[in-house]
Nucleic acid binder design. Structure first.
Lengths: 127, 127
DNA sequence: CCGTATCCGTGACGATACTG
DNA sequence: CAGTATCGTCACGGATACGG
């Protein structure tokens, strides 16, 4: 008992659950897509129109990744022209409140952060 | 009044507060550093040791970026050998609960996500 | 309408070596 | 001990063009 336990009590590792998830929501469009879908399912084109600035490729890629995690559910209706709808999954609904909180924090803190950035840059840029 | 307002009620833009913050916590080591510092201020070397797998360069870079946002406060003690301590800022303390929730969600959901991934890959890999 | 395929710039991330 | 400097890799993200 003289020997102390080696630590790893928590996950401060390069690879851990936190990072697996954070790297996903760190993706540029993932969270925005979640928020866009929170009210109702939407068609591909509608999402694309709502997420101003997204390319087809990135939207497809984002939606595929989210489908792979089953954060969203993809439904194809065999009509003409083709119709594809995306909807939030139950899993995503448990995550949604968290990212909404984060969004609120972001909007609240942004002003302060920008001020801090300017102060830092000025202090280090010259002097 | 017949004309409907153009929308932009919310921020679904490429550039917005949400993305500014998300891109930061999406950084590989930012959140881990926050969690590591939540109990007490730590020296550079101590953080480096705790965040298994981080390089000097990335740790420095991460800490600088967080200092620029004033998420952490850097204190230099002019001793020999040199001693530098990092501490969470009040701003970071308001963010901490959110990332802790996120961390908890991640650990809880990871199993399901991995299962979903396998199912998705199997369904699309062959069939 | 809903994608896939290809090409490419840029920046995150890391390994290594050197400085105060 | 606490960094800075340099170099290399890789994948995120985007523009464009084509296919079902």
């Amino acid at each position: 008992m003289s020997k102390k336990i080696e630590l790893p009590p928590d996950a401060f590792l390069k690879v851990c659950a936190s990072r697996a998830v954070l790297s996903r929501i760190g993706q540029k469009w993932t969270v925005l897509a979640m928020v866009a879908l929170q009210d109702a399912p939407m068609r591909f084109g509608a999402i694309r129109h709502r997420l101003e600035g997204v390319s087809q490729k990135m939207l497809t890629q984002t939606l595929r990744a989210m489908e792979r995690d089953r954060l969203i559910v993809r439904n194809v209706y065999d009509e003409l022209p083709l119709r594809v709808e995306y909807a939030l999954s139950p899993l995503a609904c448990t995550l949604l409140p968290l990212v909404v909180s984060l969004k609120a924090w972001a909007e609240d803190a942004l002003k302060a952060i920008e001020t801090n950035n300017r102060a830092f840059d000025q202090k280090h840029g010259k002097e």
